[in-house]
Amino acid sequence: MSESTYWFQPPPRPSKIPLPPEEPKIPPVEISIDGSKVVVPAGATILDACKKVGLDTPTICYHDTLTPVNVCRVCVVELDGSRTLVPSCSRKAETGMVIKTDSERVRHSRKMVLEFLQSSVDLSTAPQIVKQAERYGANSARYGESATPAAANERDHRHAGHHEFPPGNRAQTVAQPPKIDNDLYVRDYAKCLLCYKCVEACGTDAQNTFAIAVAGRGFDGRISTEFNNPLPDSACVYCGNCIGVCPTGALSFKSEFDMRKEGTWDESKQTKTDTICSFCGVGCTLSLHVQDNRIVKVMSPGEQEITRGNLCIKGRFGYSHVQNEPDKDARTR
């Protein structure tokens, strides 16, 4: 390369700010929500419109960075002319729609969905769902006491189709012992409400590793690796992106799981600081959760365009070199 004068000079400033080509303009959409008019851009969902008017719409399976699967149905609203309620998280707003978000039907469905979840899933680490359940007056006691938890791996062998008719006096649940098969993750499926988020995060929405999928059918549906193999035998690459999106704490970092177990996990004593991962040049934002000067959890903000909340194994777990553990080799600080 010749060292022309040019090489000594930084490039000139472009006369226009470089921008992506303009998208064709589609007129905005006007809908009515609980009697008031809302204008949202074309392509926006009913949920977007609800947010715009400041409505607190409960969501569980919805996540900003994931394709809506609309399976939890807690965000349903009443749409004039529709026989059934519609999921606000995925239904696109269309001009002329008349929406009710607080009708008797809507309140009933939300209450029942939350009640169903409460009666079948351990929500002890999902306070935001419990709060919504209280808001809608869910009362899971109506279904009786919880049935005996399943033995380890028993649910994983359930076959689709015929079931023995239940006694009915106790509510069947997904309770089962947690799966601990590696040093980084714990999968406590007694807390899993099958929102599909982890599967999406492991799949085409982010990680594209496809280590987990929904297996089985119906109430026996579960998140599983192939043949219920332990994670180290699966395709898992420990990016932790499934944990990042889990709404109930069914998936957690072993560090958090252990601290909760020994009673030392204390969010009130934790700080959260955003910084940049040092393990490559991509520039992923890390949200470091620090308790007692130790990093206890690493997340990434979903709104950051680089990560969209996702990290890799190094970003997620590569912090141990700054933990100042005693009793490690001489190199440790």
């Binding site: 040093d183 690459v237 194994i313 190094k314 590569g318 141990s320 190199r331």
Partner: peptide, 18 residues
């Protein structure tokens, strides 16, 4: 490789199943 970094100084501390 995915789970390690350069000379390993910073990544050898965590127990990677990979």
């Amino acid at each position: 490789r995915l789970d390690d970094y350069n000379t390993g100084v910073q990544t050898s501390g965590f127990s990677s199943p990979l």
